[in-house]
């Protein structure tokens, strides 16, 4: 079972909000429009992605207009 995470390159992110629409259970927005995870995740990830949301997260990665998102997988420890 692999754990999936969503990483955002903050130097690219412009807060367009597509990822927030696609992953409403994981992300909200701050007052400037940038994605704000509902639960903060330590390390380099914006948020962890539960198995049920992986397809939506892949969609978010594909559609991000700034190409700022990356999905990461690591073996669960």
């Amino acid at each position: 079972m692999n754990r999936t995470g969503l990483h955002v390159d903050w130097t690219r992110c412009d807060g367009r909000g597509l990822c927030v629409e696609l992953l409403p259970d994981l992300l909200g927005r701050d007052e400037w429009g940038y994605p704000l995870p509902h639960r903060s995740t330590p390390g380099r990830l914006l948020t962890e992605v539960p198995p049920g949301s992986v397809a939506d997260a892949e969609q978010a990665v594909a559609l991000c207009p700034l190409l700022a998102l990356t999905l990461t997988t690591e073996a669960a420890t």
Binding site: W10, C13, E31
Partner: peptide, 12 residues
Amino acid sequence: GQCGPCRFGLPA
């Protein structure tokens, strides 16, 4: 000023 949350969040 590279990352939005820092660029706008810190002045706020």
